[in-house]
Write a protein that binds this DNA or RNA. Structure first.
Lengths: 209, 209
DNA sequence: GGTCACTGAGTGACGGTTCAGTCCAGTGTA
DNA sequence: TACACTGGACTGAACCGTCACTCAGTGACC
């Protein structure tokens, strides 16, 4: 019996699998992610995963970059809604602190960065991809700075926007790692304070905190 | 006549295995590290590894913390040799940039940090260990700052030494990740420049660069 | 003789990959 | 409308290499 109708309504399987994979990776970690888990999550056989992606590795890389892509786009969209550069900067900072906002915990997103980094150590394709992804994030910082300088909201006599963005972005990465790993000293609130502080010092605007 | 020694010269096997494990992890990555590899590296059977450590996991955690320990101690020793605080600070910075000094590439050390972080995501013991290790590094930064203030070499009117150290340490982490992953924009030299620059700005001393 | 470091041959589980075959939608044909 | 055929999505089971871990045994030393 079991005249199994095509259970799933024919949506884009490729997409569906990538999303499931990203989910599994955040849940169990890259090293503990099995094809079976991904298959289970979209109610499909392991064979089908390979049918679409050829190998586990190809899927993993795609899932990692896809997930990062998504959160980048979400932030981009958010920022564009704010008219003032200082608002954008403050929001950008909020959206960089893992665990600060209950509605966007970002813990998963940051955990995926760690996985990307480790994989990039030995996988040249991942290394290249990682650089692209990272560049984009730093760019959106420097865009906010330039935007503020253009509108006259930020002073224009400070350092090069790209340099500030790199420096600031690096600090955010370092702090986020600690927060993500549940450091007892570096809490989300403290990271948030530091970021606001440093941003204002580097860019030269004053917040309304 | 003295009794003939064992085939293996009786050195502390425990130690030997931990060192071999650390080596293998840096070579192949945590995920690709097999007991067999470690056994091979110290010319011993896989059984013996388990005989000493009970499980692979226990050995891995010990190896990761051990390796970190070693490089911390090495830096500590180095710094103590320098009389001037500014020299200490400059050396500390040199010893933080992966791939800057040919004699201490530090690439391995930083790669191990990445592995520690990922593991700490899901292993509470590793998370705790990671915090201890990290705290120590940050502390040695703030010690240098306090030392410089004590000797009058650094101004004492700037921010709290611990705060500066955390902030600076976080930035170093973030930059080091990029350098480690062969970023085309963030080279060792550039990271070095940024670090010197930021350190001088934060601490308020002037370098002789 | 007893203990301890150590070996090496298992063993069992796991998990990626393969593959032969099933099911079905669509298409062409009469 | 009925039927045959095709190609692609999908399954389930089997395959097979890999590894962590076990254990019975060995030889050296006290």
């Amino acid at each position: 019996m079991s005249t199994r109708a095509r259970a799933k309504p024919q949506r884009d399987r490729h997409q569906e699998i990538v999303e499931a994979a990203a989910q599994v990776i955040t849940d169990r970690g890259l090293a503990e992610t099995r094809i079976q888990d991904i298959a289970d999550r979209c109610g499909v056989s392991p064979g089908l995963i390979l049918y679409y992606f050829g190998s586990k590795d190809r899927l993993l890389v795609e899932a990692l970059t896809y997930a990062n892509d998504q959160s980048y786009l979400r932030m981009s969209r958010e920022l564009r809604k704010m008219p003032a550069a200082s608002e954008r900067m403050d929001r950008l900072i909020q959206l960089s602190v893992p665990g600060l906002l209950p509605e966007y915990s970002l813990l998963d997103e940051w955990a995926l960065w760690l996985e990307i980094w480790v994989r990039a150590l030995r996988d040249p394709q991942m290394a290249k991809e990682r650089e692209n992804l990272d560049r984009r994030w730093v760019q959106s910082i420097s865009e906010v700075i330039r935007y503020g300088r253009q509108t006259g909201e930020f002073p224009s006599d400070a350092a090069d926007a790209d340099d500030i963005a790199m420096e600031f972005g690096a600090m955010v990465d370092g702090l986020a790692i600690q927060v993500l790993l549940n450091d007892t000293v570096m809490t989300p609130a403290r990271m948030h304070d530091i970021c606001l502080d440093v941003a204002r010092r580097l860019i030269g605007y004053d917040g309304t905190r």
